[in-house]
Design a protein around this nucleic acid. Structure first.
Lengths: 305, 305
DNA sequence: CACACTTACGATATTCGTAAGGATT
DNA sequence: AATCCTTACGAATATCGTAAGTGTG
């Protein structure tokens, strides 16, 4: 017993047209092949489905029973295949990406807008989370992939470096540092430092840098970069933030200067579960992000002013 | 694009077992063939459905989408095919037969009981109607076939003679006729006659006979044969009824004597629509009735007493 | 190197189309 | 005689199994 979509379609075609010849044509077949096909169908279901004389074709009582099932089967098949085709063609689907607040503030939305232009049918979502939760979301499958400074366990996650973000010192506009085109870590020695939350990747990375640089710990630790900007503006200290986060703390009276030391940068990885492949939609987004990273960098990260 | 039941089953098997080899065996195939089959499926739906390394097999996001549809499709197919198989095997179905009150009173129920014994799953119904409505029910498809003294239009109906029923004269037990083993029409001359309803086949046939015999019209016309029995018992006249109807008018003080004239009989036809075939269930009943008619007649129609 | 899926390729089975056959009007 | 479905039969296609190949742990 093996019903095939073609068998069902043929049945329905004959049911509707009540003509072998017409139904055969609709199914792109010769009348002969079509007749044999109906014969096979009847044999497979074990009952005659059509009463046929040369004059008329009509359903037997069993045929009527089958017709109802056939319609449901055909509908399910159509729906399922279409759904899948749509996803494969990127005409539908959903992509959920986890990203740190810095990237979620501007760069990622820009990417999403571009993606939406290309694939209007795909539903886009973003989970803006601190680094700590990013890998967790990826692991649980709550997001398709994540943008993160940590690439996770090699065995569990698959990561691709998207780019390295330079760090910036955020200080008061009046600060001597603000006049410089770039600074080095050693220049920061003894300066009061405002930290971001420990859950974020920035803290996890800058913690080392601050100690290397010998900066002074103010004890201030903010969850939102906007808060950092405010504290800096009012003289509580300086901050060390990656380029993409600049916009969030930039404001009147605040300046930013890139840190020039080689190797001082925040990597941004695309991270996915190693054991699961991306949906077609997610893969398209992943590819786009990667392609963008490969493009010659335009004036990203509103350069220091 | 052509989904087949096998393809869907294979998909589900692999989904459940997560092993090509095991799933292949469950589908009675070599691992190789199974692999190719999954490959074809993926090609047909246009998306990769499984992530497979030699170590593990799991669904892709598209595979998960497909899995839901596949389960519905498989369920529909199973249900539809089973339903049809059951009907073809006479394990389910329904038969509705139209019959005149006389046959519906005893003979038909007996046949139905026998049929039910053979095919307990088949739902049996009977429409006990006068001859006038019988063909109408058959025409409208309200019944699968009818038992009737009229065979209907040759072009519209297909009829098979089931048997010829002899007529009986129903009279008071004290009547001189009651003592005879059989009578002839000529013996009835001048006797007061009680008729059955004009809508029934009995009236339609006996009307002629009564005139031939020269009986006297009492003006009495009953709908129920029981009424006829009552009228006869109380001396209102005699009745002329077919064998199968005897039981309905038989009672204390009433006797019945067969009419011996050759050719004086009521034919009982099985009648169906010519342009529609019977359901498997109905055909089985039809065949049984026909077979019974062919069997040597046992003491049907509680002989005259 | 052992296991599990895939690919190659010849064998087999289905399915198709052309053409002849049969039935109905 | 015309129309429409079915059967016959060789051809094309699809599917299968054996066996070799490939990648992973």
């Amino acid at each position: 017993m093996n019903l095939s979509g073609r068998l069902v379609d043929a049945f329905l075609a004959l049911h509707e047209t009540r003509r072998f010849a017409v139904a055969a044509e609709r199914c792109h077949m010769s009348p002969s092949a079509f007749s044999q096909l109906i014969g096979r169908l009847e044999q497979q279901v074990g009952a005659r489905l059509f009463d046929r004389t040369t004059r008329s074709v009509s359903l037997t009582p069993e045929g009527e029973v089958f017709a109802e099932g056939a319609q449901r089967i055909a509908a399910e098949m159509r729906a399922t295949v279409h759904e899948l085709r749509d996803r494969a063609q990127r005409r539908s689907g959903r992509v959920v990406v986890a990203a740190p607040p810095s990237l979620a503030a501007d760069w990622l939305p820009r990417q999403m807008a571009e993606f939406r232009g290309r694939h209007p049918g795909i539903d886009l979502r973003v989970a803006d989370v601190v680094a700590d939760r990013c890998l967790e979301l990826v692991r649980r499958g709550d997001v398709d992939f994540g943008l993160n400074a940590l690439r996770g366990e090699e065995s569990e996650f698959e990561a691709r470096l998207l780019r390295d973000e330079p760090f910036y010192v955020v200080c008061r506009a009046g600060d001597p540092l603000a006049a410089r085109r770039r600074v080095r870590l050693q220049d920061l020695k003894g300066l009061p430092c405002i930290q971001t939350t420990r859950a974020g990747s920035v803290w996890q990375q800058t913690q080392q840098l601050l100690q290397q640089a010998g900066m002074r710990d103010t004890g201030l630790e903010v969850n939102q970069l906007g808060t950092l900007g405010g504290l800096v503006a009012h003289g509580f200290g300086v901050g060390l933030v990656p380029g993409s986060a600049l916009q969030l703390c930039q404001r009147e009276g605040v300046a930013a200067v890139p840190v020039a030391d080689p190797g001082v940068a925040r990597p941004i990885y695309l991270v996915k579960r190693r054991d699961r492949s991306l949906s077609v939609a997610a893969q398209a987004m992943w590819d786009q992000l990667l392609a963008d990273a490969g493009r010659p960098r335009k004036g990203r990260a509103a350069a220091a002013r």
